[in-house]
Amino acid sequence: MSEPDPPVILIVEDEPDVAETYKLWLQGDYEVRMGENGDEGLELLDESVDVVLLDRMMPGLSGDEVLSEIRERDLGCRVAMVTAVEPDFDILEMGFDAYLSKPIRSEQLHDTVTNLLERSEYDSLLQEYYALVEKQATLEATKSSAELAESDRYASLTEEIAERRESLDDALGGIEDDDDFIATLRGLSNGEGK
């Protein structure tokens, strides 16, 4: 069996020194791509990118413009805004999944990236959980309770659903704070709706 591919992080940052530093910190654990401005960032962006670190203040396309293009393309990646000023809650309303204020420490960067990857992981676990629940619901809607009580398939499905529910709540620490909550909900709306 081969190792799974590492998650892909795209850094969009106009200051080369800063971008290099982030890359140094991250390259041991992730595949890192770097764009020097918004246009380059968008060129490097495809389905394989998991997390984008996006500098807000850049010459040319601003971070906000790059973000709206990312959401427009419906790529499902998570976007952390990197900013020089401490933002307020409006950042989440603007469509970012997290923010980091400069100067950023290595540990902080790793924590944010890990958390954003966990949000995506949570969403795919939720997706699998839903698939089971839907199967169970179909059985419940089409069979009598006597038939369900007899059905081994129904029993094992019910058991599996209970286990999944536990692991959803435990494995990723559930939904601990507001940022997690909003970022997870945004994941549901991105490409998951109709």
Binding site: L126, Y129, V133, G174, I175, L188, E192, G193
Partner: peptide
């Protein structure tokens, strides 16, 4: 406004948040 899968996931995520 949205399909049952999305509403189901929304309820799950919201329940988790409310719990915390």
């Amino acid at each position: 406004y949205t399909d049952k899968k999305t509403v189901f996931k929304f309820c799950h995520v919201l329940s988790s948040r409310l719990d915390a």
